[in-house]
Nucleic acid binder design. Structure first.
Length: 853
RNA sequence: GCCGGGAUGGCGGAACGGUAGACGCAGGAGACUUAAAAUCUCCCACCUCAUGGGUGUGCGGGUUCGAAUCCCGCUCUCGGCACCA
């Protein structure tokens, strides 16, 4: 689109940078630490400053939170709206490995790009509160929080099978492994035992679950967290190993179905179970060893592949079912996981599909103990009534679970138990670019916490960033850093060479924003009390379990330490939807970059070959060639148009495709808003003489204005920005047609527009005689009485079919309206020869005649 | 398989149980212009023997004077989880 030649048209580039500079130099959005005003803390999810810069998906959430922030300021709130950088992480380190550039330099450059881009969109952040997780002044306190965890026994070292990624040379958390491959890079992941720092998040499982109740979060996210924590109620039951086998041991199992105990016809241990060796008979030794080896070399992907057949090996020995006293065979199989429950199960093939498949394959007995299905055809896992279960026969499932558990406890055979899917959090990484642990090791191999006064523990300079491949971080190859003395005893010690995962810095950044420059404490308690909790947290759903669960965990620990005043950090959470982009594929199935495509009508044509391409709507990514850069949109249409389009596309929560043509629509709206105030002329920017201070507002305009204030206000509160914008369009369409525009009406319109298009808002406000900035001008109020019309259009239906409409006074009574409706010619026609059986009038809405005969 | 969302014109999307399709994009017609761009005005679900009538919110039922909206049963689709005993 070319901007009209006549000056002074709507030219965002002529004033957008000016206002950005104004806000910056006047510190317009500087937040008072503590104020008499009510507080409102609105937070964007912590961005990772990647090398590729922003794409149009990023500003969606930022724009929404900015609109809300600006609105809240105008409503009289003291608003905390900060931004910063989650800047540790793998990409900068991988770049360092390849190029030798220090990750700090890469990080710095990326942050500058992000800042430039973000600032060009006019977001109202308090830049004095910017934080950066890689800054020693910041990670000093990340390390301090780790010490609090350590001192409370929540951080420990364990030799644990971990997700080892040879390609990345590091271990990964369960959450960073997707389908047996690394989330970053998609490399294969194998299991390998290693010494690792773990955080005891499982100790908080119940609180993390229960406290979800009071949070104003999307149900979907709560469900995902509940699912991740995976609380199961059941029982632990002890199975005695058959004394004839010569082994005196008990096998403990966890089951959620104690009511099916009479149907347990065999047992299965995980291949890693500690009693496997002892329970393996001589004849089975070779087969068992081979199976264990095969399992160990399998990747998690192979091991969890559902479509594969059940596999397993008989150990040769037997256990005694404690309720039937029968001998049942003990097997190992990889469908039983070492890391869940006790690593052993009682197999009830009649009532568990996995056990059923296993029994079928190996010819094991399937016994029905719950009636209601046909266990010869498939396992019956539903609820039913107990059979073949001695004195418990006839009990329904739920009652039987309780009764059997009570009986097991009384008999000393078992007890009620709870299990969680949630595992402790694997907290160390074999990387350079992360926070060092404030831990040293003594000569005996005991970890010692360094005193708080020594923080921060900074990263040393290294010459090589590549992981050694042995599982040690690049820090291990810096002896002058590793070898040190203990500050108190003076004894020689070695530093922990692992670093913390990227999640560490983002677990508490929202607390640092409250008091970002404090070098005495992590944050001032009085300020924390004033600002917490975060009132509104906006970000993508990709953080549903990882970041949000970890941050909640840390927050609860800090709460127990008495350093935060709320038990939850984020009161309200909202996930904006993903923005997709049009992608194009040729006949060969290759993606064609959007630059090489012309769209005409509904077809996409390859500019060079003329081939008609397939049009797809997919997630934006470099490889698909469908990334839209906000810089391009800003230079073509201006920041306000980008912001407005992001919000106008559809509901904030919805996934929606970016259509660059759509930007021109909102651009045209902003240009018409400009022309409402500044006429198309040939000279300098002057306010239109149609705008008059002395003009009185006609009734129709006044009512439309109040309706608009109401709709925009309620829509902002409900995050329905798309419909707020459409109402502003309706309002402007009307104002544009007026011969004389009362200045008061124009000013109100500008105020309502300003959170969405703040640059244009400020510029027009200024032209209309407003003082320096409108950022703190009170938000317009509406009069409910002026939000309705005196005359309303009522639809007239015969048998629920609309036949015509007519206007009546809003407060006309039913009798009058029904009588008037009957007289309408269009109604008469349909009533002819018929009897009105029932007449309904919904005031101001509809008349419906039910007829018969 | 389990848990969540969705499905409305050519497209993005609006609609307290009450006139389905607001607002915008694309498209069409016109005005202005030497012309184009920009701007402005109007049209724009489908069918039809058009001042009217009929059909329409993924499919099939139901509740109701009245259903895109509520209930029951499906289909398709997008996210997430997935051998968790």
């Amino acid at each position: 689109m070319t901007i009209g030649e006549k000056m002074p048209g709507y030219e965002p580039s002529s004033f957008e940078p000016k206002w950005q500079e104004f806000w910056e130099t006047h510190k317009t959005f500087k937040t008072e630490d503590i104020s008499e005003k009510p507080k409102y803390y609105i937070l964007d999810m912590f961005p990772y400053p990647s090398g590729t810069g922003l794409h149009v998906g990023h500003p969606e959430g930022y724009t929404a939170s900015d609109i809300f922030s600006r609105y809240k300021r105008m409503k009289g709130f003291n608003v905390l709206h900060p931004i910063g950088w989650d800047a540790f992480g793998l990409p900068a380190e991988q770049f360092a490995v390849k190029s030798g550039t220090h990750p700090a330099a890469t990080t710095q450059r990326n942050i500058e790009t992000f800042k430039r881009q973000i600032k060009s969109l006019g977001f109202s952040y308090d830049w004095d509160r910017e934080v950066n997780t890689t800054d020693p002044k910041y990670f000093k306190w990340t390390q301090w929080i780790f010490l609090q965890l350590y001192n409370r026994g929540l951080a420990y070292v364990a030799e644990a099978p971990v997700n080892w990624c040879p390609e990345l040379g590091t271990v990964l958390a369960n959450e960073e492994v997707i389908d047996g491959r690394s989330e970053v890079g998609g490399f294969a992941v194998v299991r390998k035992p290693m010494r690792q720092w773990m955080l005891r998040i499982t100790a908080y499982a119940d609180r993390l679950l229960e406290d979800l109740e009071d949070l104003d979060w999307p149900e979907k996210i709560k469900a995902m967290q509940r699912n991740w924590i995976g609380k199961s109620l059941g029982a632990e039951v002890d199975f005695l190993v058959d004394p004839q086998s010569g082994v005196h041991a008990k096998l403990r199992v966890f089951t959620t179905r104690p009511d099916t105990l009479w149907g347990a016809t065999f047992m299965v241990l995980s291949p890693e179970h500690s009693l496997v060796e002892a329970l393996t008979t001589q004849e089975q030794k070779a087969a068992v060893a081979a199976y264990q080896e095969a399992t160990a070399s399998k990747s998690d992907l192979e091991r969890t592949d559902l479509s594969k057949d059940k596999s397993g090996v008989f150990l040769g020995s037997y256990a005694i079912n404690p309720v039937t006293d029968e001998k049942i065979p003990i097997w190992i199989a990889d469908y039983v996981l070492a890391s869940y429950g006790t690593g052993a199960i009682m197999s009830v093939p009649g009532h568990d599909q996995r056990d059923w498949e296993f029994a079928k394959k190996f010819g094991l007995e399937i016994r029905e103990v719950i009636s209601g299905g046909d266990v010869l055809q498939e396992a019956f896992a539903g609820e039913g009534v107990l059979v073949n279960s001695a004195r418990f026969d006839g009990l329904p499932t739920d009652l039987a679970k309780t009764r059997v558990t009570e009986w097991l406890e009384a008999e000393g055979l078992g007890k009620g138990a709870i299990n969680y899917k949630l595992r402790d959090w694997l907290f160390s990484r074999q990387r350079y670019w992360g926070e060092p642990f404030p831990i040293v090791w003594d000569a005996e191999g005991n970890p010692l916490a360094l005193p708080e006064e020594m923080l921060p523990i900074e990263l040393p300079q290294v010459s090589v960033y590549k992981p050694s491949g042995t599982g040690e971080s690049p820090l291990a190859s810096v002896p002058e850093w590793v070898n040190t003395t203990h500050p108190e005893s003076g004894a020689p010690v070695t530093r922990e060479t692992n670093t913390m995962p990227q999640w560490a810095g983002s677990c508490w950044y929202y607390l640092r924003y409250i008091d970002p420059n404090n070098d005495q404490v992590a944050w001032d308690p009085a300020k924390e009390k004033y600002w917490m909790p975060v009132d509104f947290y906006i970000g993508g759903a990709e953080h549903a379990v990882l970041h949000l669960l970890y941050a909640r965990f840390w927050h609860k620990v800090l709460f127990d330490c008495g350093v935060v005043s709320t038990k939850e950090p984020f009161q309200k959470l909202f996930n904006q939807g993903m923005i997709l982009g049009f992608a194009y594929k040729d006949k060969g199935g290759n993606y064609i970059h959007a630059d090489k495509v012309t769209k005409s009508e509904d077809k996409a044509i390859h500019k060079e070959t003329g081939e008609t391409l397939e049009i797809l709507i997919e997630k934006m990514s470099k490889s698909r060639g469908n990334v839209v850069n906000p810089d391009d949109v800003v230079s073509q249409y201006g920041a306000d148009s980008l912001r407005l389009y992001e919000m106008f596309m559809g509901p904030l929560a919805a996934t929606k495709p970016w259509d660059s043509d759509g930007v021109s629509g909102v651009y045209r709206f902003l240009a018409r808003s400009w022309r409402l105030v500044v006429p198309q002329g040939d000279g300098e920017v002057v306010v239109s003489d149609k705008i008059r201070n002395d003009a009185t507002i006609d009734d129709e305009t006044l009512r439309l204005l109040h309706k608009t204030i109401k709709k925009v206000t309620l829509d902002i509160e409900g995050l329905a920005f798309n419909t707020a914008i459409s109402q502003l369009m309706v309002c402007l369409n009307h104002l544009s047609k007026l011969e004389v525009v009362p200045a008061q009406a124009a000013r109100t319109f500008v105020l309502l527009l300003s959170p969405f298009a703040p640059h244009l808002g400020e510029e027009l406000w200024h032209l209309l005689g407003g003082a320096d900035t409108l950022a703190y001008t009170p938000w317009p109020e509406y009069d409910e009485a002026l939000c309705v019309d005196d005359m309303v259009t009522v639809a007239v239906q015969i048998m629920g079919k609309t036949r015509t409409t007519f206007d009546v006074p809003r407060d006309a009574d039913q009798e009058f309206v029904l009588a008037a409706a009957k007289e309408l010619p269009a109604v008469q026609k349909h009533l002819e020869g018929k009897t009105i059986r029932k007449a309904i009038y919904v005031p101001g809405r509809i008349v419906n005649f039910v007829v018969g005969g």
